[in-house]
Structures are given as structure tokens and as C-alpha cells.
Simulated assay, not measured.
Amino acid sequence: MKRGAGRQGGSRRNVNKILKLNTRDRNILLKTPFMASLGPTALAQMLEIATVTNYEARDLLFREGEHAEYFFCVLSGYVRLYRLNKDGREADIRVCGPGDTFAECLLAVGDTYRYNTQAAENVTVARFELDKVRALAEQEKDVAKAIIQCLSNYLRSTMDIVANDRLQTAPQRVAHYLLDHCPQDSPSASIRLPFQKSLLAGKLGLAPEALSRAFSSLRRAGVTVRGRVIQISDVSALKQI
């Protein structure tokens, strides 16, 4: 899909001053799969090398092909991962929210970023220098194991995404997303999207117009859309899609 370039065509703006972790940031990091598997010593060392930076909506964190210095964890807001072709068409890869990490695949191999990243809104991220984490992995077995486990989890989730994209229709993808965010055992639900519908379209591998058609087809299952708020009058009917 093709979107407005925003700040893509120009140079990336300077980020705010580098900050250290506050209590809230620390608590988010502690719940990430990468950090949660670390022992006390390795965890303390990882937290010590973490720095916090802010980006405004539509700022680029990095571009595909740039020299890779960091991997990241989102602390607030949403970050969009995507690729561009020579004609400027965009393909979304992933949408990362609070607690999600990205670019950690470069800890094992590679020295350039493999995709572009853009702040979908004002975001705060923790950054970890790749070289420092690699050196730490040589000393701390926990860090090395965490890297392997993280990459394994992403491989499995990517395989699930590929399979779902091939096996599910657009309405089924949307229905699956909505059901994942419905309260358990509730006959009806009201969901507020945490981001714009254009971002949801990319997250589900759909063009914006395909997402609109999917929502239209879900009306018969009791789904109505008003801005970011989605009302589901019959959860059981949605499960039959």
C-alpha cells in the first residue's frame, strides 16, 4: 500500500535528549519476554545499558540499509515496521506496541537494518547498543539463551502469520483480531482501537480499502464501526465468520 511520505523523504529529526529508565519504563521492560527470562545479574546489566529516547508522530527511527547500532523496546505508543519498493509502495511488516521489541534479530547476524521504522504517534522507546549486548552475551549465558528464545518465538509467530494470511479471508482476519480483544465469555463487546484503522490494515496485511470492505461484510455479524470504536452486538455470530 502507498501512504503519504510524511518525514520519510527528509532526514530523520534529532531525538530528544537521552534519558535513563524511570520506574514505569523499568516495569515495562521487566515484563518483556527477553528480560523476563534473565537472571538477576544479567538483568541488572541489561537495564544498566538501556537508554530512553522519544520520537514524534511520523518520525523515522531508522531506515532500511542503515548501519545498525541498536535494538529497541517500545515503552509507550506504537511503531510501524515496513518496507518500500522503488516505486514508493509500502508493505507493512509489523506494528509494535508497549513491551514489544524489534531489531533484536541483528544480535545474531547482520549489521544493517532490514526495514524502515516509523513512529505511528508520539512514542518512547528503550534502546540497547547491539555491540554491548553481544559482548554481554559472551559473558552471561542467560543473555545468550534469551536471544535464542526470542528469535525462536518470532520465527513461530511469523509462521503463524504467513499461514493465517494464506488461509483466512480479509473478513476472517478482522474477525480474528476483534475476537482476540473481546472480553472472555461476553455476549457483546465494545472495542476501541489503540491506533488508526490505517495502521490496523497494515497490521493485518490489508490495503485500507480492503479493511473497509471487510468491516462492511461483518455488519451481518453485528459489527458496527464509529471512528476507532467498534461495537460487536453478537460475539457468537462473529465467531462463525
Rank of each mutant, 00 (worst) to 15 (best):
M1K: 09
M1F: 11
A5D: 14
R7Y: 14
R13G: 09
K20R: 14
L21W: 00
T23S: 12
R24T: 13
N27I: 05
I28W: 09
L30V: 14
T32W: 00
T32S: 08
P33W: 00
M35R: 12
M35W: 09
M35V: 14
G39N: 13
P40D: 15
A42G: 02
E48K: 13
E48A: 12
A50H: 02
E56Y: 11
A57P: 05
L60A: 12
E64Y: 03
G65K: 10
E66T: 10
E69H: 13
Y70I: 02
F72K: 03
C73F: 13
S76M: 09
Y78N: 08
V79R: 00
Y82S: 14
R83F: 06
G88A: 13
D92L: 05
V95C: 05
F102Q: 01
C105R: 07
C105G: 03
C105F: 06
L107F: 05
L107W: 04
V109A: 07
D111Q: 13
Y113L: 08
R114I: 04
Y115H: 15
Y115R: 08
Q118D: 08
Q118Y: 04
E121Q: 14
N122P: 15
V123R: 00
V123Q: 00
V123A: 00
A126Q: 04
A126M: 03
R127G: 03
V133A: 02
Q139M: 09
Q139W: 11
E140H: 12
K141Y: 04
K141T: 15
V143S: 06
A146C: 03
A146G: 02
I147N: 02
C150G: 03
L151F: 07
N153P: 00
T158G: 15
M159R: 11
D160F: 06
I161G: 01
V162I: 15
V162E: 10
A163N: 08
R166T: 09
L167Q: 12
A170L: 01
P171F: 08
H176V: 03
L179N: 04
L179F: 03
C182D: 04
C182S: 11
P183E: 01
Q184W: 04
Q184G: 11
D185V: 00
S188C: 04
I191Q: 01
R192V: 01
R192G: 12
Q196F: 05
S198W: 10
L199E: 05
G202K: 10
L206W: 10
A214G: 08
S216G: 07
R220S: 13
R228N: 12
R228G: 09
V229A: 13
